[in-house]
Simulated scan of single mutants.
Amino acid sequence: MKNFRKLYGLVVLLSLLGLSCKQITKSVNETFHPNDSLVKNYNQGNGVRLNGNGEDKRTTTVSTIPFIKRQQERTIIINDDTFNTAEMELKAKEMFKDIELLKQKQSPATAKEIQKRVNRFLKEMKLPQGGLKTIDTEKAIKTKKGLLSTAELAFAQEQLKKLPQYRNKEIIVYQSVHFYDNGSINIMLQHPVNLKYADAYEYRDGVWSAPKPVLARDIESRTFPLSKMRFEDARKVIKIYNEKVTQIEGAVPTTSAYVSIWDNDMRWFPASINGTRERFDIQFNNNGTLKSFRKEL
């Protein structure tokens, strides 16, 4: 199934990049006809020799090579899973046609609609959804970007202050702020009008999202002014934490940090370092500098 999903993922990826119908049909045929060039290249690369009837002439069995067999009734067997190629071809062409129509709309929701259409095809063919994840380009997209730089963190905070709903209003942080190693920030803010409410925001690719309502509890004691917090201090916390990690056997460095708010005060996390033999408590000042570091008994 792994090789099959890779072939299928390649076809879908090519279609999304704008191949013509003729090219897509060719790709479909190559994907769902294993006796064609793809399989021939695979066999040659793995030392497989076929006789006049297309049968393997080797006498030695290699368990790591998947068993692929073409049958007269237009089905293929890949690692003991049977697929009807005629049905797959028909449904794949229908999917490509729908994708072309979606692309013409040029709507902000086009990407999501295309993904839904691909998932519907996978579901109809009883294939695992998310098959595109086997493509290297997908892996590259998912690669972590790392925590934002000091300048980028400061810029994110300035952009937050410019949100139109908070114009001429003090921004109050509710409950927590998370700084992730994929370059995003999650924060909750007290509602600018109804102070009993709170909203969640996400910062990604240089832009803050629209507010999303959250269930707020103990909001009176779990708030802290944004003006008394600096996003760039997250890098200080991570740097100091990881310096201490190098002194502790078996401890693992961190790539992210977050602020938790209790009793109208902020506290940086992670707040402990676990080694294979020892555990340490580590505390930070509000500005990200080291406050205390001690071994737990």
Score class of each variant (00 low, 15 high):
54 G>V: 14
84 N>S: 00
109 A>R: 09
42 Y>V: 04
96 F>D: 06
113 E>I: 08
115 Q>Y: 01
94 E>S: 12
62 V>I: 15
73 E>Q: 13
129 Q>T: 10
45 G>I: 05
41 N>K: 13
39 V>D: 11
69 K>S: 05
64 T>N: 10
75 T>I: 14
77 I>S: 03
129 Q>E: 06
28 V>N: 03
144 K>R: 10
112 K>R: 11
125 M>I: 03
142 K>Y: 13
114 I>P: 00
152 E>T: 06
102 L>K: 06
74 R>E: 10
35 N>D: 13
142 K>W: 14
32 F>H: 01
58 R>W: 08
136 D>Q: 12
50 L>G: 07
113 E>M: 13
27 S>Q: 02
118 V>H: 00
74 R>G: 05
53 N>M: 07
152 E>K: 12
53 N>P: 01
37 S>I: 15
49 R>V: 15
41 N>P: 03
118 V>N: 02
54 G>N: 11
31 T>D: 00
81 D>G: 08
35 N>Q: 14
37 S>N: 10
137 T>H: 11
52 G>E: 06
55 E>Q: 10
110 T>C: 03
70 R>C: 04
127 L>V: 11
72 Q>S: 14
54 G>Q: 03
67 F>S: 04
119 N>R: 05
114 I>N: 07
125 M>W: 04
29 N>H: 03
113 E>S: 10
93 K>F: 06
143 T>R: 15
148 L>S: 01
133 K>T: 05
119 N>A: 09
95 M>I: 09
96 F>Y: 15
54 G>P: 08
67 F>Q: 05
57 K>I: 07
119 N>I: 01
16 L>C: 06
89 E>W: 05
62 V>M: 13
